[in-house]
Design a protein around this nucleic acid. Structure first.
Lengths: 168, 168
DNA sequence: AGGCAGTTGAGACTGAGTCTCAAGAGCAAA
DNA sequence: TTTGCTCTTGAGACTCAGTCTCAACTGCCT
């Protein structure tokens, strides 16, 4: 009765509607995605499958992810990185992200008032929204308690530059 | 007198603070960015400079963009594409984006109520925000009137082709 | 003049993501 | 059973934005 099997069923229904088939590769991917991951990257998935000795190629992973995104079961999100992350969608719980620039933690939240306000803005601009994507970057509670600063390497560099100027 | 020259001055001040210099390459880039562009891509900039016979390398463009981002004069934004876009920051006018998935139009908006709500959310999660990034994808007024369907990335493709020719 | 940090362009490199192509699987009609 | 068709797959070539390296150059300081 695991929920994962239900997700595989949902995917199969979607595929059939498109005249496509649920293959063993596709099923393993759905199983992997819905069993353990929350936010993940395509290559991470490739690695995990290889670890489990499930033979599946990079191309198939990307192709399946595309199908999953089309089916609405998986979402592509930006997490402030220079490449995509994915997350599975359970039910219809849309949410947005707080991203800690110090430790990389990702905190999810959902706020109906925020969504309502966005809809108002769209109406005012006569824009028909289909999807949105909000990331708030900053420092999480744990990191601010530790007093850590974001972007440490830059700071170090600036201090070094400062020292050089002083010497001169 | 032109605002552009003031921006160059601002950049120079920033650079000096870091023990760096305002070179002619850096000045031309700032001039280009603040004169005409709003949202732009790095390769687009490379193309424009070549068009104007200003000799400047890809590496220098990326390096200068990085400095401009550090200085706070330019912002890196995601516009729903798979690579970065940049926008210059005038004053401190933060804004977010409505992005038409049919024609690629980008509509800016600023909504204090939305920002206030975001601050409330952060407070509740004890998260210290430094920056946020909101894109709402959908269909703009003109396109919904025309009844056009999303996903016609011709415009983007043309820019990529332009860049490709340049590259070699 | 010599030293030195900062800067540059050319081009090699990286790595996520895409595309191509030949081979295989499954199914349906003949 | 054979033929034909569509879907699917893996291997690996390819793309392209972005990064890195390195030798050459600049201009300032002593």
């Amino acid at each position: 009765m695991p929920a994962v099997e239900r997700e595989i069923g949902r995917f199969q229904t979607f595929l059939q509607g498109q005249g496509l088939k649920l293959t063993s590769e596709r099923a393993s991917l759905v199983r992997e995605i819905f069993a353990t991951h929350y936010h993940f990257e395509a290559d991470e998935l490739l690695f995990k499958m290889k670890e489990k000795s499930v033979k599946i190629s990079r191309a198939t992973i990307y192709r399946t992810l595309e199908l999953l995104v089309k089916s609405g079961m998986v979402r592509r999100v930006h997490l402030g990185e220079d490449h995509y992350h994915y997350e599975h969608v359970t039910g219809n719980s849309h949410h947005d992200h707080l991203i800690c620039t110090t430790c990389g933690a990702v905190i999810e939240f959902h706020d109906p008032a925020l969504e309502a306000r966005q809809r108002e803005i769209c109406e005012r601009k006569r824009f028909t929204p289909t999807f949105h994507n909000l990331q708030i970057l900053g420092i999480c509670e744990a990191c601010s308690k530790k007093g850590e600063l974001p972007d440490a390497p830059d700071r170090v560099k600036m201090i070094q530059l400062g020292a050089l100027q002083l010497r001169k």
